[in-house]
């Protein structure tokens, strides 16, 4: 069965085509001015990458801040459910997922059935989110993809004193003007984001198997830094971390069908639960 998941985030629009829990193709596009066109392009790209025909897609589920934009979605599902579903499907032993996106940070505890048991979201403050990283990488002229290698060169991180993302930027600019090394600054920022995220994560009983996803998870060094600041091992989600929500949405779309198809589907699910225990 082929399903499509949409995750309309605050910064990027993600689509993912899934067949029997396997990703067939996905697409990520920056959101912007002509939102309808962007969505259509994302959908087409994704379907094309998956090598399927549009009519073969049986169910569509949308999630994220702009979930209502997908008019033809069979259902709109909360992002917490999608993230838990995705993490749990990929790794039955995981107990929690931390998703750091453009503006939102989600920390979710996952129960034995892949459902969110408890969750925590950042308050109206972007100081730990991907947006801060994006702003800073822009003003320092370091692409997001090379943040990680820049950070690992440093052994003497510069701690940021300002908790506001915009003022963090001005602090960075002035520190950088004073001759501070870029890698020290980047490591400092990653650590300050990690400490923010760790603060949120402390509010939820995250258990021993923590998985990290979202755009910020693409910065490899961040996983290690967060792990250090929380004193534990954290694993990165084994797919492109940015499409975790979309993948989860597609999986849930698949489940909707399983419920109708009866016995076989539910049998498979039960086995999974046993393995998990």
């Amino acid at each position: 069965m082929i399903t499509l998941g949409f995750d309309i985030g605050t910064r990027y629009i993600k689509a993912c085509v899934v067949r029997d829990e396997k990703i067939m193709g996905y697409s990520i596009r920056e959101s912007g001015r002509n939102i309808r066109e962007i969505i259509d392009t994302t959908r087409e790209e994704c379907v094309h990458a998956a090598g399927v025909k549009k009519r073969e897609i049986k169910k569509t589920v949308s999630t994220g801040y702009g979930a209502s934009l997908i008019h033809d979605a069979d259902r709109q599902i909360g992002i917490e459910q999608c993230l838990s579903k995705a993490a749990w499907t990929l790794n039955g032993y995981c107990t929690s997922i931390v998703d750091i996106g453009g503006l939102f940070i989600h920390v979710i505890r996952i129960d034995a059935h892949g459902k969110p048991a408890d969750s925590c979201e950042n308050e109206t403050c972007a100081s730990g989110s991907g947006k801060l990283l994006e702003i800073i990488s822009g003003s320092m002229n370091i692409p997001l993809s090379s943040l990680s290698e820049t950070a690992i060169r440093s052994s003497n991180p510069h701690f940021l004193t300002s908790s506001c993302a915009v003022f963090a930027e001005s602090e960075i600019v002035s520190l950088s003007n004073q001759g501070a090394s870029k890698s020290d600054l980047i490591l400092g920022i990653l650590q300050s984001i990690a400490s923010k995220v760790a603060g949120y994560a402390d509010r939820v009983d995250t258990g021993s198997g923590m998985v990290i996803s979202g755009g910020v998870a693409k910065v490899d060094a961040f996983k290690t830094i967060l792990g250090k600041s929380m004193n534990r091992e954290i694993s990165k989600i084994p797919i492109d971390p940015q499409i975790t929500g979309a993948y989860g949405a597609a999986l849930i779309a698949g489940d909707m069908e399983i419920k109708f198809s009866g016995f076989f589907g539910s049998f498979k699910k039960d086995r999974k639960i046993k393995e998990n225990k």
């Binding site: 308050e123 403050c125 760790a198 402390d202 600041s229």
Partner: peptide
């Protein structure tokens, strides 16, 4: 050294 550990106990 910062508010890393206490921020979980307080709001922003």
């Amino acid at each position: 050294a910062g508010t890393k550990d206490s921020s979980g106990y307080f709001s922003s």
